[in-house]
């Protein structure tokens, strides 16, 4: 018998590639959250309504990842001293 797939309407979720866990590895259902707003990466920052490309992530060289809007807002405050809120190292956006 030969099985030919003519058309496959599949369903998938998208995940941010946060570098840490590989999306295909099983059992990663625990949500990764933005360190600033505590909302899921795949959710959106408090000022956004649409997730995904409208509310992207920003990757730091220090390996920390935040919602871009959250981080920019943080960097914009004088108290931040341009540091990563997690490790207080100067924030440098990672090249990707």
């Amino acid at each position: 018998m030969k099985v030919t797939v003519k058309h496959w309407h599949a369903v998938a979720q998208w995940r941010w590639d946060t570098g840490g866990t590989e999306p295909d590895r099983g059992g990663d259902d625990e949500e990764d959250v933005c360190g600033i707003c505590r909302a899921a990466y795949e959710g959106c920052c408090p000022s956004c309504k649409m997730p995904g490309d409208d509310c992207p992530l920003i990757w730091g060289q220090c390996s920390h990842v935040f919602h871009m809007h959250c981080l920019l807002k943080w960097i914009g405050t004088p108290a931040s001293k341009q540091q990563c809120p997690m490790d207080r190292r100067p924030w440098v956006t990672a090249e990707r």
Binding site: K2, K6, H7, D17, P23
Partner: peptide
Amino acid sequence: YAKEFSTFKPDKRLRWLPHLGTVHLELQL
């Protein structure tokens, strides 16, 4: 497909929900 998707959206990965959807098949017996 997932590979092609990641090329298009470099920051994103696909995670399949294999039990959902429909497949149109042709069986040649």
